[in-house]
Design a protein around this nucleic acid. Structure first.
Length: 442
RNA sequence: GUGGCUGUAGCUCAGUUGGUUAGAGCAUCGGAUUGUGGUUCCGAGGGUCGCCGGUUCAAGUCCGGUUAGCCACCCCA
């Protein structure tokens, strides 16, 4: 027998049902915030990704040369496609643009916990708004998504940071522009590496500044409140122009935190400059969501990327957005006992004798036509007992019994397979009766 | 890319210092059960013991390689 490729998953019905329920709640939650869906190609030009992340990422992509000689790649993330699509129509679109996508992404890496080679992501982005109103709504929407699964502040939290703060810090330290990426990745590693190892790694790029940077960065990363950030800013050694810019940024911080508070996000958001995110294209506020009771991969991550669309050749377009993966999210929901399931609908099983078959089949057609789920046995001349057994095994909620007694009165017996209770219903009223059944599901 | 652990039925797993024809539970299928299911009982099907090679009279068991899965590292969209 063939097996699935490494890192690719089969979804048998039990898993498929959960997966669809996940997508449904994603969709409902983000649409409630006014986002509309879009999609793009799964296969894109390899250069689209190289443009954004550099040649070295090629080794992590599923890429090949197509029969037309084009270098192409399966999409590893949605943002470049979004940037390309939005960029080409940006001038004609009413702002803000609020789009979401649920789609498969591919990454050729070694599979492990929370990571596969094909994963589904929810991407939620706001384009065309420079102000922090967009950042606030982006974060609020992320929280809406978590809450749509019944998760609370006991289950998850969001760490909020700002790359601009780090830029001011690097101004004060005197870090050269072309070394700033290294400093950011050093900050990203601070939680995992000790001082000696990190300082020695960082000193290869910034020389003897490394020790000062590490110690100052540790201070900033340890600040978790707005007043602390402002006080930290006051102590920075900056030029008058930079001072004005920092003051303006702190005002934006204040606005953002205020908006998040008013939107009911305070219980979930914690200021945490230690988050910087690995991607090169982020420019401002960045955030990541984590489980609260367990160490795990980030459940979602995002931030502002104001330069990406322009870099891809489009007009300058402000942007903020985030992505959430299906693998880590389902893992989290299972841990929290909140695995989603689709709404329970009545599932009917037709039970009939051979001579009642024509009448029964007419109702099968009619009920299916009105949207009911209707099953029946393929077995010929099976007794009512056999058919009811099959009904139970199929997970049906109700059996519709077409017996000669019932049909003589123009009725059928509707039997609730959960409680065992039964009642007669006129054939003509079946669809309405079924529609009125209220099944309590999870 | 590096390392650790693990591969026996659809699933979860037994399988003794190497020794007849590799087992159990669950699941599946059939029957008991021809107008009322779930329970119970009986029966059946289902295996290249991941794969290749080696040692041995003899390998599911020991050795080497390989492959896959899980986990950690690396890296992170």
């Amino acid at each position: 027998m063939f097996e699935s490729l490494p890192g690719f998953r089969d979804f048998y019905p039990e898993d498929y049902e959960v997966r669809q329920a996940l997508f449904q709640r994603w969709k409902n939650a983000v649409e409630s915030a006014g986002f509309v869906g879009y999609d793009g190609p799964v296969l894109e030009s390899l250069d689209l990704y190289i443009e954004k992340s550099g040649e070295e990422i090629v080794e992590q992509l599923f890429h090949f040369v197509d029969k037309g000689g084009r270098r192409v790649a399966l999409r590893p993330e949605m943002t470049p496609t979004l940037g390309r699509m939005a960029g080409s129509k940006a001038n004609g679109m009413r702002k803000p643009v609020k789009w979401y996508n649920i789609g498969d992404h591919f990454r050729f890496e070694r599979p492990q916990k929370g990571r596969t080679r094909c994963f589904t992501q929810l991407n939620v982005d706001i384009l065309g708004e420079a102000g922090v109103a967009a950042d606030a709504e982006s974060i609020h929407t992320l929280i809406l998504v978590f809450r749509a699964f019944g998760l609370t502040g006991e289950d998850f939290y969001i760490r909020l940071s700002d790359r601009e703060l780090w830029s001011f810090a690097m101004d004060a330290w005197g870090v050269a522009v072309d070394q700033r990426g290294h400093v950011l990745s050093a900050i990203d590693k601070m939680e995992r590496m000790d001082r000696d190892a990190l300082v020695s790694w960082l000193s290869e790029h910034v020389g003897e500044l490394a020790g000062v940077i590490y110690d100052d960065a540790k201070v900033l990363a340890g600040i978790h409140d707005l007043d602390g950030l402002i006080a930290w800013g006051h102590a920075l050694d900056l030029s008058p122009e930079q001072r004005n810019a920092l003051d303006a940024r702190m005002a934006e911080w204040r606005t953002l935190i205020g908006a998040l508070k008013d939107l009911g996000c305070s219980d979930y958001v914690v200021i945490d400059p230690g988050i910087v995110r690995g991607l090169a294209y982020y420019t401002g506020f960045v955030f990541e969501a984590f489980e609260k009771r367990r160490k795990s991969r980030a459940l979602a991550g995002g931030g502002r990327y104001d330069n990406l669309v322009g870099k891809l050749g489009g007009p300058d377009l402000h942007a903020v957005g985030w992505a959430m993966g299906d693998v880590t999210m389902l893992d989290c929901l299972e841990f929290c006992g909140k695995t989603p399931h689709e709404a329970v609908r009545p599932k009917l099983f037709m039970v009939f004798g051979d001579s009642e078959r024509p009448v029964c089949f007419a109702d099968v057609d009619a009920l299916r036509g009105s949207g009911c789920r209707v099953l029946y046995s393929y077995r010929a001349n099976a007794g009512f007992g056999k058919q009811l057994k099959e009904a139970s095994q199929c997970g049906c909620s109700h059996a519709l019994i077409y017996g000669s007694d019932e049909l003589a009165d123009g009725e059928v017996t509707v039997k609730d397979l959960g409680s065992g209770s039964a009642r007669r219903v006129k054939r003509g009223e079946l669809a309405a009766f079924i529609a009125a059944l209220d099944l309590k599901g999870s």
